[in-house]
């Protein structure tokens, strides 16, 4: 489904990603882990086209998307969530979800501007679809509330609802479990599996929460200093001595700020 070959990204003298390759098969749930500053979010930014890597290719759904701008990759079926949330504060939950439906509105912006007949009908349909998604995520009560007035957890759910509303083939989730309680994280695992099984979504996620990774991921890539440290099934990874060393040693070494927090 998604393939990255030899991604290399530099900011000035800083090598953020170094010859990184990974593959996510259709219908798989794949984890991307690593200490802070390892380049996980930068990797997402390269995959979605927000950063243009100096070297490497990205192919998605059987075609090369390396040169496509972000919004075209989104249109091809890539949806992502953000570590510090991709909801628009000034919009309500419903409006946020409808915003995420952008590429499947089925009418042009100019037609909407002129208020042509079909657009009214489509708007009503989109609103109905949005309500369905909102209900699925249990956000019905806050559908009309501005995102800025909602607590973090609810906004996080809204972000997830938005990712789904775009009708994607693949989800890229940036720390979906951060800020969740263990119970909520467990529920999330259930949701992710359900999404995969019912909607046949492919999922790539950055996650620190080890139990969640162990529970849902079919395969895990471990990143350290922009390079692939190792890869394998979650059970193998957990026993891997270098991974343990990277997490324990890396936590102190990169504490003074990696690029991950900026996305």
């Amino acid at each position: 489904m998604l393939r990255a070959d030899g991604l290399s990204l530099r900011f000035g003298g800083l090598q953020v990603l170094d010859d990184l390759s990974l593959t996510v098969g259709e219908g798989r749930i794949v984890g991307l882990i690593g200490p802070n500053g390892a380049g996980k979010t930068s990797c997402f930014n390269c995959l979605t086209g927000i950063y243009q890597p100096q070297a490497g290719r990205v192919s998605f759904d059987g075609r090369d998307v390396s040169r496509l701008p972000t919004h075209r990759r989104a249109a091809a079926g890539m949806a992502r969530t953000w570590q510090n949330l991709g909801v628009i504060d000034s919009l309500t939950v419903t409006e946020n979800v409808m915003l995420a439906q952008h590429q499947r509105t089925g009418y042009s912006a100019v037609a909407g501007l002129l208020g042509l007949g079909g657009t009214w009908l489509r708007e009503r349909e989109l609103r109905r679809d949005a309500a369905e998604i909102i209900d699925y995520f249990g956000l019905g009560e806050v559908a009309g509330v501005r995102a800025s007035e909602l607590p973090y957890g609810v906004r996080k759910t809204c972000d997830m609802a938005m990712a789904l509303a775009s009708d994607p083939k693949m989800l890229l989730l940036d720390e979906p479990a951060s800020g969740l309680s263990p119970e909520e994280a467990h529920d999330l695992a259930g949701t992710l599996r359900e999404l995969r099984d019912r909607l046949r979504l492919t999922i790539l996620m950055i996650e620190h929460h080890v139990p969640l990774v162990a529970e849902v991921c079919d395969y895990v890539y471990v990143l350290n200093f922009g390079r692939l440290l190792t890869e394998g099934r979650p059970a193998e990874i957990q026993r891997h001595p270098e991974v343990i060393a990277a997490y324990l040693g890396g936590a102190a070494a990169t504490a003074e700020g990696g690029e991950d927090g900026t996305a």
């Binding site: 972000t70 919004h71 409808m98 915003l99 708007e123």
Partner: peptide
Amino acid sequence: RLVSTKAGRALTAVRNDERIASTLGV
């Protein structure tokens, strides 16, 4: 009509965060 349809929502996203807007397909 602008604010009630896709263009209005898209512009709101662009105004707030261009990167988020682009990953939503705008």
